[in-house]
Design a binder for these strands. Structure first.
Lengths: 336, 336
DNA sequence: CTGAAAGCGCTTACAG
DNA sequence: CTGAAAGCGCTTACAG
């Protein structure tokens, strides 16, 4: 592997000259630059980014840690983060904790990035707290972690006390509302469950455990199976609130198979507004969680932290208060 | 940020002693190790992985470059690669070329990994050829690139000449087989299309362009819309071969909406065997592309290349010849 | 068992 | 406009 030393030696130049030439520094003459560039090509030189990072003490990389990059619900968030990080001139790398969190932890504990966005519960809070510092801020999506240089979305804590979906169903006259939860290992499920409880109580409707069903996973199949279990007692239920759209779509299919008409026989509502949800028939009423805004907020916080603009973070937070989830009205909820 | 120098100074030790202690080198006494560890904790020391990489001249990282990490069809491949890479003790990082290939290219051109697996067509062949070298091998999934230290799956080239799906349909007595293609930007589509053509021709059935429909994207929605277009001339068609399962699922929905019975009125077959495909009713007949095996092969090749075991690569290739796509028989194809 | 030295490949003052 | 030197934070022979 050719290095700048090799180029310098062959050209009888100093390494600093070569370095500057390669970086197109204006203090180097055009002539010299050309010589250096030609020689670099001739020798097959490629810059060693690792050496640059060590010298500059930053990597220009943001690491995004997720449980499973290929989860479809996650698509919007990833795209939004990707785009926002790029807009700041940083590069985004993704690490998965699917099989093991080793890679993510190594990256964090060895400072192989300038900052990290964590969207998984596979990394312990203690680990996060141990490694966050001024020159290595972290943003936690989906739950809250206390600590210096650790940022998370306070708004989401409020959101857990509330469910736009349940409020909407109640407003439409539904009282006996079942909830189908997804995997409790994912971050959205517990939040949705507590929103379900709290919103019922807020409107004076008792929370009844027997109306909570478990899809086990956040999948079409999980929703299908859970809904088959609901069907036995469907007489006692006005509406079903699904923890996410994949589950809801599976549920719709189950209802169809049993010839239960949506929304005539039962109303249903999903959560997350996946693309497919507008395409099925009837089109699924769902909740827009505004994940893009959450993603932008995460990146903005991190960037402010990297620039030590801590006051800007507070401003961003205040601004974000205005972003709240709202129901996307479609065809699967009917006035009762 | 505390460094080993700081620890060494405070403890009146040499930096090499500290370094070795931190790495649990057996030549350092337990006593000293404990001192060093305690002091490291006290100072909040964290190892700088970048410096280690520079010194060791390797990163232990494999970069996986994909167009869009959240595409569902891609899930199996990602998991398989992740797992296999981990089994070799390497870390896998993912870079997306969705909005721009800048990050991926920077990583490659600056040698920020030990090797790379490319599963996108957003990186030009010229770029790949310019940066592959002995200490930076590349594996290209989904298409073939010529060059030293560039590996790709030759088998897949043969596969493009053949479609198990079409052969199966023909065997079942279908002759007028439509093909619904997905996005031509994705790697699978052109391959599936040429497999469709060649397999028809192989069995003496003329290829007719008017039987090829375009879903535009590899999505449920694309399949739905494309299939609506087919329905007008459904009288002339025995079976539909969909470029992937997402598209096929959308197509099934369209047929249902038009009260066309699958498989009684028309047979359909998908490709890729997504989890959902076994859950719909009737369960979708599809093709198992054995993507896991392809993923393992990619990682194995790369690892052999890193170890300069080039003969092993040939062995792996020979072994892989036995892996071929096969039809998963389910309920959406009927004997004609 | 411990330490001084060289070096990984680069950049950045500083001096000329 | 160019170059010698110091240094980023670590590891690895080598010497003791």
């Amino acid at each position: 592997m050719a290095t700048i030393k090799d180029i310098a030696r062959e050209l009888n130049l100093g390494v600093s000259t070569v370095s500057m030439a390669l970086n197109d520094n204006s203090r180097i003459s055009q002539q010299t630059k050309q010589m250096v560039l030609d020689k670099a090509r001739e020798l097959g030189y490629v810059k060693n980014g690792i050496a640059v990072d060590l010298q500059k003490k930053c990597t220009n990389i943001i690491l995004f840690v997720v449980t499973d990059a290929s989860r479809s619900f996650f698509s919007k968030t990833l795209h939004a983060i990707q785009e926002r990080v790029a807009s700041y001139g940083y590069d985004l790398l993704i690490a998965t904790t699917q099989s093991s969190s080793r890679t993510a932890k190594r990256f964090i504990s060895e400072h192989r990035a300038d900052g990290v966005i964590i969207y998984t519960n596979q990394i312990e809070d203690e680990f996060i707290q141990a490694y966050a510092r001024e020159d290595f801020p972290m943003y936690i999506m989906g739950h809250h972690v206390e600590g210096d240089y650790i940022f998370s979305d306070d708004i989401q804590r409020y959101a857990s006390d509330y469910s736009a979906a349940v409020e909407y169903l109640i407003a439409k006259g539904h009282k006996r509302i079942a909830f189908v939860k997804g995997s409790m290992k994912t971050l959205g499920t517990p939040r949705r469950l507590s929103g379900y409880k709290n919103t019922l109580l807020k409107f004076g409707i008792p929370y009844r455990e027997e109306l909570v069903f478990d899809a086990g996973s956040n999948t079409f199949a999980g929703g299908y199976d859970a809904t088959m279990n609901i069907i036995d007692q469907i007489e006692n239920i006005d509406a079903i609130y699904y923890s996410n759209d994949d589950i809801a779509l599976g549920g719709m299919r189950a209802l169809q198979h049993r010839n239960i008409q949506v929304p005539d026989d039962i109303s249903i509502i999903g959560s997350n507004n996946l693309p497919e949800s507008s395409l099925v028939s009837p089109a699924l009423t769902t909740v827009d969680l505004q994940v893009e805004k959450g993603a932008y907020f995460a990146v903005d916080c991190l960037m402010h932290a990297l620039n030590k603009e801590y006051d800007e973070i507070q401003k961003a937070k205040d601004h974000r208060k205005n972003d709240i989830e709202h129901v996307v009205e479609r065809e699967t909820v009917k006035e009762k």
